[in-house]
């Protein structure tokens, strides 16, 4: 530091602060508006100039979401409320809470099964020297080269012929097909970074393959496991296109489908939609906060390995 001129240092700090602020605004701005507007009435969020912060905190939208099931929504009752005050409900509002449970159920199943399948597959490919292991790896990865959109129609036909349309199981199976190959790939590169001698030592000390997996590979790849879990849950949580095609009603529809339905309604209540949006981002945010110290090292794991 000695002798370094002061002026450039200040200039550097100012520039850094400015661009950091710009970046934060860009990333966090929409989320902030989502939260802010969910606490306002319809009239307040459509005001000009806009209310960046709620003039008064109003939980009316959340109240409506939680109690939607008790309200009858018909064309007439809808008309009674004034759209400009946010006092009306979209026709699908009662589906919101059930779809939240659907999303959670599917997400947790996908996260758990994805981990189970990927860990065992990645261990086999990374550790066991069997004939055709390269071919296996490439086959798994090749399934991800095909764009999802190209798979929709065949997938729909298969699911329909199995009689699984509009079931949560159909979504779980479909999402696993998306997440498992990626997760296998992440875990393989992580497992290959674990010194082979540790595997050898474990085998010598008395472990079979299950023992080596349990005593060496799992404890040493915690960050990658958490990253896989998060990735699978979020993929499932956010997925839209497959869910749209494979589900039809409240029995299996997930949150993104129901929320998007609000926007296509006759009149859109933005404050209500945004309140639903806030509910939709709570689980991922919780997950990120809970696992943040693993996620960063998990996602960069492949990059630093020699």
């Amino acid at each position: 530091m000695a002798g370094r001129p002061l002026a450039p240092r200040i200039g550097r700090a100012v520039l850094l602060a400015f661009f950091s602020a710009l970046f934060v605004l860009y990333v966090a701005g929409p989320v902030a508006w989502l939260v802010s507007s969910s606490l306002q009435t319809e009239a307040q969020i459509t005001a000009i100039p806009p209310n960046w912060l709620p003039p008064e905190v109003n939980f009316g939208n959340f109240d409506a979401i939680l109690n939607a099931a008790e309200r009858q929504v018909t064309y007439e009752t809808r008309r009674q409320g004034d759209p400009a005050t946010g006092g009306f409900l979209p026709s699908g509002a009662a589906n919101l809470i059930p779809s939240l449970w659907n999303s959670l159920t599917v997400g947790l199943w996908v996260a758990a099964l994805n981990l189970l399948l990927s860990v065992t597959a990645a261990y086999a490919i990374a550790v066991i020297d069997f004939r055709g292991r390269r071919a296996t790896l490439y086959t798994v990865l090749a399934t991800r080269v095909v764009p999802d959109i190209a798979l929709i129609v065949p997938l729909f036909l298969v699911i329909r012929n199995l009689g699984l349309i509009n079931t949560l199981g159909a979504l779980v199976v479909t999402y696993l097909a998306i997440t498992v190959p990626f997760t296998i790939f992440i875990l393989i590169s992580y497992f290959e970074g674990i010194p082979r001698d540790l595997y050898r030592a474990a085998r010598i000390d008395g472990c079979g393959h299950w023992g080596a997996l349990r005593h060496v590979y799992l404890p040493l790849s915690l960050p990658a496991l958490v990253a896989s879990l998060t990735f699978a849950f979020l993929t499932s949580w956010n997925e839209f296109v497959f869910a749209l095609v494979l589900t039809q009603n409240v029995a299996a529809q997930t949150l993104p489908i129901v929320i998007s339905g609000f926007v296509m309604d006759f009149t859109t209540s933005f404050s209500f939609v945004n309140a639903a949006g806030v509910i939709a981002i709570i689980p991922p945010v919780l997950m990120a906060v809970l696992f943040q110290r693993y996620i960063v090292s998990g996602l960069t794991a492949g990059a630093v390995k020699g």
Partner: peptide, 9 residues
């Protein structure tokens, strides 16, 4: 082993 191969955890 040359690398000792102790379980780091």
């Amino acid at each position: 082993f040359q690398s000792y191969a102790l379980y780091p955890n």
